[in-house]
Nucleic acid binder design. Structure first.
Length: 281
DNA sequence: ACGAGAACCTGTTTGC
DNA sequence: TGCAAACAGGTTCTCG
């Protein structure tokens, strides 16, 4: 599920609950997710104050007093929801890790498919951590523009759709926002990565930035599992131009859907791509 | 090195 | 109605 906008939404929502607060209880309810949950997770977190909650690509970085950093990835179906401790909903089967603060908040990491992960590292080792070291530029930072994008795409012959999912070229995009950014920039998902240069690259870099900004402002997209930190749904799914809209009218075309077939769905490397063949070339 | 496909896991939707 | 297949927001490994 969660792409950059969903992770950023969670980060923003959890920040007021966690930052500046001491953790008084951390409990893992199973030994592993995609990776083992460190056996000393609680020992290294409890009693420490949260200094910051940051995001790098689709990872959350929970920075603790003393230099410990918890790296959290939500995988496909992960969520992090904060509730007051005195409200005690049934603990769900997929509530894998619980964080509790000194002032009575409980943050629950839930992840039915368990493609997510929680691991520990330190401030010293963060830049060279295997999960982070190869990530490309943050698309919402100054470090990202058309020149950087073109450089990353290089001479690759893979479709631009696949190149944008490669986290080493640009970090944070997933299936939804790649489809939406390609639509906004009028670029066919089937075009080779290397052929996206010049004004096309300008449009694509800008579309990536814009679609992410719009999605963060809408609290991300809730197709199934995504929840904001307060448990509310995101609502950017209502603003999709193409994603999940096979057969519907393209919002940029005024042609007859019955004639053109509207938005098309194709499969690229085993994943669905949605696009308008008339507007995207 | 590159690119395609499979694997990881559970839940929901779709089709016969 | 019931059951099987297809599909789902991600990442990583293997194979050609």
């Amino acid at each position: 599920m969660p792409e950059l906008p969903e992770v950023e939404t969670v980060r923003q929502g959890l920040t007021p609950v966690l930052v500046g607060r001491r953790l008084i209880r951390v409990q893992a309810n199973r030994p592993n997710l995609r990776l083992p949950i460190p056996v000393d997770l609680a020992q290294r977190c409890v009693g420490r104050t949260v200094l910051a909650l940051d995001r790098r690509a689709k990872y959350l970085l929970l920075r603790l007093e003393g230099g410990t950093v918890a790296l959290i990835h939500l995988g496909m179906s992960g969520s992090m929801v904060a509730r007051r401790l005195e409200s005690h909903p049934d603990p769900g089967t997929h509530d894998h890790v619980i964080f509790e603060t000194e002032d009575g908040w409980r943050v629950t990491f839930r992840d039915p498919r368990r493609f997510g992960l929680i691991t520990l590292t330190t401030e010293d080792a963060l830049d060279t951590h295997p999960l982070l070291a190869k990530l490309g530029p943050e698309p919402l930072s100054e470090a990202f523009d058309a020149r950087v994008l073109v450089n990353g795409l290089g001479r690759r012959l893979t479709p631009i759709k696949m190149a944008l999912l490669d986290q080493t070229i640009v970090a944070g995009l997933g299936n939804i926002y790649v489809c939406e950014a390609l639509f906004r920039s009028g670029i066919s998902p089937k075009r080779t990565a290397a052929s996206v240069t010049g004004r096309r690259a300008d449009r694509l870099a800008e579309a990536i930035r814009q679609v992410l900004v719009d999605a963060v402002a809408a609290g991300g997209s809730s197709l199934r599992d995504h929840r904001q930190a307060d448990g509310e749904l995101g609502y950017f799914q209502h603003a999709f131009a193409v994603y999940g809209r096979e057969g519907e009218a393209c919002p940029g075309c005024d042609c007859d859907v019955a004639k053109t077939g509207g938005i098309q769905r194709i499969t690229q490397s085993g994943r669905s791509t949605f696009f308008c063949p008339r507007r995207q070339r």
